[in-house]
Each structure stands twice: as C-alpha cells, then as structure tokens.
Design a protein around this nucleic acid. Structure first.
Length: 507
RNA sequence: CGAGGCGUAGCUCAGCUUGGUAGAGCGCUUGCUUUGGGAGCAAGAAGUCGCAGGUUCGAAUCCUGUCGCCUCGACCA
C-alpha cells in the first residue's frame, strides 16, 4: 500500500512488523537522509545523510592514515581493454558496466540532441565499477624495485555498477566508497595488510556504528572477482538477514600478472608484486539503519550522529527571547566540551513549528539526546532531557547538563551495541541436519545466522543456495562459539567438514 | 529480459465503468490565536490530467500507439 502521510496523525513510516522493506524506504526518506533521483538506480544524498557519511569517512580516513596509508585519486573512466586483462575480473563486472562511447553531442534535427556519429571513441571507456585495473596500470610504472614497495594508497570515490534492483544506500548504481589498493613484495605482507584492514573495518563497525559483525573468510564462490581470497565483515539486520558491510581482498599476483607489474627483490630476482584491495561504501549507512532504527525513525550511534543533542525551546512569544538566549547559552557550553574526541554536536531548533512537531522530527532524524527548555525550566534552573532510546524523560539542573549528556552518550552507544548483539545471539543457531537447515530458512523471513558444517565444495554451496536461498556468508576468523571449530559432517552431503561456517540469507 | 501494476497539484490519491472542460487530504503562502508529544481558525497560490495521434459538437474519461516509473524473478558492496 502506498502511504499517504498525514503529518498530523502519523509519522509516515510503515512499521517494521507490517512490511520491513517499506519501513526501510520510509525511514530513509522521513529521516531526510536521501531520496531517489530521476536517474534510475541513483540516489540524492541529502545534507543530513551526507553529514553521516562525512563522519564515517573522517573516522575511517583517520584509521587508514594511522596505519600508513595515503590518499590519491585515479580517473573515473577506464579503457575497456584494461578490463579484458584479468579474466575473472571481467567476468565479475562485465554485466554491470556503464560504457562511454562518444565524446560529443550534436543536433538530432528534431530540436534534441544525439551522440555525434562523427565523435565515436576509438576505444570505449568504462565508468569505473572498481579501480583495480586503472590503478595497476599506473603501478606498473611506479614499481621497479623492492625499494618502491609497499605502496599503500586509498581513494575516496564514486563508482558505478548498473544495478537491476537498486535500494537506497544498500544497493545503488552509483555509490560512494573508499577503495584501498596496495602493492607488496611478499604474499605474507599482503596477507598482513588485508587482515589489518579487516580489523579496521571490524573496529569501525563495532565501535563507531555499534554494530557487531562477524569477520571472516569468504568461500571461493563468494569472493571478489579476481581475488585470491576475500575477507568480509557480516552484520545481521533486524529482519534477520546478513549484510556484507566491508570486504578486504588478497589479490595474490593476479593483477600484477595481468598488468605485468614486477620488481627486483633485494636478491636481484625479478618477481611479480603481491596486492590487496579493500573497500567500504555508503552501504554502511544502510547497514547502520537496518541494525538500530525503529518505527519512530533513525536511531543513530552517537559517534556518527550529525546532531547528538537537539535543544527544543518552548514557550510563548513573550518568553521567546529569554528562552532562546538560555538555549543558545546551553548549546554554547555543550559545544565547548568534547565527547569521544570531538566537540559535542548541538542544534538549537528555532524553527517555527510546535514543540511536539520538533520532538517527532528529531526522533525521525536520529538526534541522540533532546533537551527541552521552557519558561518553567528557566525559573527552576533546569531542563528536561530525553534520549532517543526511549527511557523516561529526566529533569536535569542546567549546571549538570554537560556531564549528564556526556554520560548519556557513552551509555547510548553501549546500549545500541548490546541490543544488536543480543538480537544476533538470539538468532544464531547451530544446525546439524538438512531438515533443520531447510526449516531454518523456510518461508519469507531472513532466518538469522545458522552455523552449520559444509564439505568445502563449490557444488554443495550452490545446491544449498539454490534450495534455501541461504549462502555462506563467511568462515569466521574468530569462532562465535569454541565448538564451531570442531569437525563434523556436512549438513547437506554428510561428507567430513573441518568446522562450521556461517550461513544466512543476504542483502 | 520474463510476469504484474501505475502515470491527475510539491506528496499520497479520488474522479474514468456511464464523455460536458478538475477534486480531497497533507504540504505551501498570508493573517490572527497558540506553543511541555506532529496546534486552531480564516483567506489564498498551485495541475498543458506522462506524451502523440484518433473518435466526438465536446476527452482526464473511449480507441491506437509511445515513453517513463514501481513491484516480483536471474547479478551484486
């Protein structure tokens, strides 16, 4: 059912229980994060949504820099022939590429424009779906000696993958991300790099997004096209599906061989370079929304909240000046303090709306803490404080607001993580028979995480996914339960299995 | 590409069966009153009815064509 938001009656958000997909869509729009563009599959990230992305970007960028990485930027367009050089890579991306074939428009004689037939490109360009090929073309020129290694470059960029079924933030044709591309002298060094990044991703998800993730290795069937192996972090959404939140690939020497990138080792031997690539995208925003938000709107982890504290002034026209002055002063003292290493982000909402409207609006938009300040408070030197997690409102003395806010934000993040972890624990099962496995994923629902034995073959993996829609999300690096690493029998074939792996229906 | 559905005001939709020249709610503008959980009243602005043909005295409505979008299936961070 299409919604007809009647603002005076409801919030314009379908409840999660009624229809999770509609809820998500409504949430993104009502929280003012993004909207669909006229360009199919692309979204307009609105200022509030972009503010979240900027906070994510800055945090991750700091973590990359702290581990020795530097930023650079490579072209948006990639010669078609570059893609043809790595067989698996082509196969992985060929079906979703946008292609630039002309470099000029001309009149079509009917008042419109058309690509000028005289201006066909000799070689078409692909709008980057990922940048391995164009970057390795450069690396060939940059690398001669082991002294040139390692190269630890990241770029913040937009990419395009022609998606058939786009969803805001989760899967859009154009999306924003960072892609790291590193070059190393040895396999082990590249392996270490991919694990370092995996751990950054895990920490970011857990400490900044307050989303527990399972870090682990992708099966060959699920790895990146062109990688030797792929590491991933997998989160669980509230509709009990897995979502891949970040990947880190050990590329082996595949791209070095495809682009003929060699170096001379200290021993004077000519060797192919070892590589990694890794990325997280605006999908992180979707992941976060799906992990924490509720039927009243966006629930934002405090370290990533564009507005951590909103102050809503209350009162009649004759009190307005006094109340505004007090609100500004309170905002000033909050801004002057730091929480989690940054000044507290405060907004005083002086818009011409009723207080009740503002309460709902800021809950929709994910402010962590709301402070109500009215004439009665001014007389008593207090304010009323509410949190987005729904606890009772509390009255706080103005002099104590700064310390209370700081404590509330600390607690907020911990609670979010704890809730998400509890959801995951309650929906992670160990299953040993094929009947139970099928039952776990039967029906419309997501089915949660299922830890089961697998014989390690691609054939079995495909059969399982064909019959249940569940796929291997990863082979966890750290077992969720020590028993998961004991041998057993494959849930489908009964063949020997070394350990349990994580199955789920995925986004 | 296979299957369904929808294009009417900024948004969500009614009107179409039975042709008579455009409506509602929300939003927006102005004014007054309000303000501690989406305020009230009053006045107002706003639509070549997706586009192109056709039938007709007359088309949002009937016919033909066309374009676009959404949902569901095969690929994906």
């Amino acid at each position: 059912m299409p919604k007809s938001p009647s603002m005076s009656k409801d919030l314009g958000i379908t409840s999660r229980g009624e229809n999770y997909a509609d809820w998500y869509n409504d949430l993104v729009k009502r929280a003012d994060l993004a909207e669909n563009s006229v360009v199919r599959g692309c979204m307009v990230i609105k200022p509030h949504g972009y503010a979240v992305w900027e906070l994510m970007r800055d945090a991750l960028d700091g973590m990359f820099k702290a581990t020795g990485h530097v930023n650079a930027c490579f072209p948006l367009l990639i010669p078609k022939s570059f893609f043809e050089k790595e067989a698996e890579h082509v196969e992985g991306f060929a079906k979703e590429c946008a292609i630039v074939t002309h470099h000029r428009l001309t009149s079509d004689g009917k008042g419109g424009l058309m690509p000028d037939p005289e201006a066909v490109l000799e070689e078409p360009y692909i709008i980057r779906p990922t940048s391995e090929t164009i970057i390795w073309h450069s690396y060939k020129n940059w690398i001669q000696s082991y002294r040139d290694l390692p190269i630890l470059i990241n770029q913040w960029a937009n990419v395009m993958r022609w998606e058939l079924r786009p969803r805001l933030f989760l899967r859009t044709s154009e999306f924003f991300w960072q892609e790291g591309h590193t070059a190393h002298a040895t396999y082990d060094e590249a392996e270490q790099e991919s694990l370092t990044i995996l751990d950054i991703y895990r920490r970011f998800a857990e400490e900044w997004m307050c989303v527990p993730v399972v870090a682990g290795l992708k099966s060959d069937g699920e790895k990146f096209a062109g990688a030797d192996h792929t590491y991933t972090i997998e989160a669980l959404t509230q509709d009990l599906r897995a979502i891949q939140a970040g990947t880190s690939h050990h590329l082996g020497q595949n791209f070095a061989k495809a682009f003929d990138v060699t170096f001379q080792s200290a021993e004077g031997k000519e060797e192919h370079v070892w590589a990694t690539s890794w990325g997280v995208s605006t999908r992180l925003i979707g992941t976060m929304l799906m992990a924490h938000s509720d039927d009243r709107g966006f629930v934002c982890p405090p370290r990533l909240a564009p507005v951590q504290v909103v102050i809503v002034p209350i009162g009649r026209a004759d009190d307005r000046d006094k109340v505004y002055a007090a609100a500004d002063s309170l905002a000033g003292s909050l801004q002057a303090t730091t929480w989690s290493g940054a000044p507290v982000r405060v907004k005083v909402d002086k818009s011409d709306k009723s207080p009740g409207f503002k309460f709902n609006e800021w809950e929709l938009k994910g402010a962590c803490v709301r402070i109500e300040l009215g004439p009665r408070d001014l007389e008593s030197g207090t304010c009323v404080l509410a949190t987005r997690l729904g606890a009772e409102k509390q009255t706080v003395a103005l002099g104590e607001v700064v310390s209370v806010v700081s404590a509330v934000l600390d607690d907020f993040g911990k609670q979010l993580f704890a809730q998400a972890l509890e959801l995951r624990s309650a929906n992670t099962r160990r299953v040993d028979t094929w009947e139970d496995f099928k039952a776990a994923f039967a029906g419309e629902g997501g089915g949660g995480f299922v830890m089961a034995h697998w014989d390690g073959t691609g054939e079995t993996e495909e059969r399982i996914s064909a019959e249940t829609k569940a796929t291997i999300r990863c082979i966890p690096s750290v077992p969720l339960d020590p028993g998961d690493e004991k041998p057993g029998k494959c849930v489908l074939t009964g063949q020997p299995s070394e350990r349990r792996v994580l199955f789920a229906k995925a986004y």
